Amino acid sequence: MDNEPLPAAGHAEVRIVAATPEVARRVAEVLRRCFASGEQRSYPATREGGTRLHLTLDTAHAAEPARSWLAASAPTDHDQTHADEV
C-alpha cells in the first residue's frame, strides 16, 4: 500500500468490502448521492466470497448532504486510526 499513488487533489479513493455485491452497491449509491464520482470497479474480496468495490469520489463537488456535514465537521484530538489501518 505504501507504493499506491495518491488520488488527485480534491479526490478520495474509497474501498468497500461487503459480503454481497448488492450491499457494496448500496453503500456506493449513498456515497454517490453526497459526492460526484467516477466509474466504480468491483473485484472478488476473498476466497470465501464477498465483494470489494473501488470508487473515486470528487470531494470538491459535494452534494448538499455532504456539504453540510463537511462544513460542520473538523478533526479532533480524539480521531484515531483503526487497528487495520496505517
Results as ranks from 00 to 15, higher is better:
24 A>H: 14
27 V>E: 02
61 H>W: 08
56 T>L: 06
74 A>T: 10
56 T>S: 03
30 V>T: 15
6 L>E: 07
32 R>H: 04
73 S>G: 02
20 T>K: 03
31 L>E: 07
85 E>K: 00
46 T>R: 13
28 A>P: 00
67 R>P: 05
43 Y>P: 05
42 S>H: 08
39 E>R: 04
18 A>F: 11
83 A>P: 11
51 T>W: 11
58 D>P: 04
9 A>D: 14
36 A>L: 14
34 C>H: 04
46 T>E: 10
17 V>Y: 12
36 A>E: 12
37 S>P: 07
19 A>D: 14
30 V>D: 05
38 G>H: 00
74 A>H: 14
42 S>P: 04
5 P>D: 03
65 P>T: 09
76 T>R: 04
81 T>E: 09
19 A>E: 15
57 L>W: 01
42 S>I: 12
36 A>D: 06
41 R>N: 02
82 H>S: 15
57 L>P: 01
22 E>K: 10
39 E>Y: 06
34 C>L: 03
30 V>Q: 05
69 W>A: 15
1 M>G: 15
86 V>T: 12
4 E>I: 07
64 E>A: 12
17 V>D: 11
9 A>R: 04
13 E>D: 12
18 A>W: 10
3 N>F: 01
12 A>Q: 05
10 G>Y: 10
12 A>P: 04
41 R>G: 00
35 F>M: 01
45 A>T: 10
38 G>D: 06
36 A>W: 02
24 A>P: 13
71 A>K: 15
46 T>A: 06
44 P>L: 11
32 R>G: 06
81 T>A: 08
37 S>D: 03
55 L>D: 03
17 V>W: 07
47 R>C: 02
59 T>S: 02
48 E>S: 11
23 V>E: 09
43 Y>Q: 03
85 E>A: 15
33 R>L: 03
17 V>G: 01
24 A>S: 11
56 T>H: 00
71 A>Y: 08
16 I>Y: 05
14 V>Y: 05
45 A>F: 13
23 V>N: 09
46 T>M: 09
26 R>S: 13
59 T>D: 05
12 A>N: 02
25 R>F: 05
45 A>M: 12
49 G>R: 15
72 A>S: 12
11 H>V: 05
14 V>S: 01
76 T>S: 15
12 A>S: 07
32 R>L: 10
82 H>T: 08
76 T>A: 04
24 A>M: 12
9 A>M: 10
65 P>I: 10
49 G>L: 10
64 E>W: 11
58 D>V: 00
78 H>R: 14
42 S>M: 12
36 A>N: 03
47 R>T: 09
69 W>H: 12
70 L>P: 03
46 T>H: 08
80 Q>W: 07
54 H>M: 05
9 A>S: 12
7 P>C: 02
60 A>L: 09
10 G>E: 13
54 H>I: 01
30 V>I: 12
3 N>K: 03
25 R>K: 10
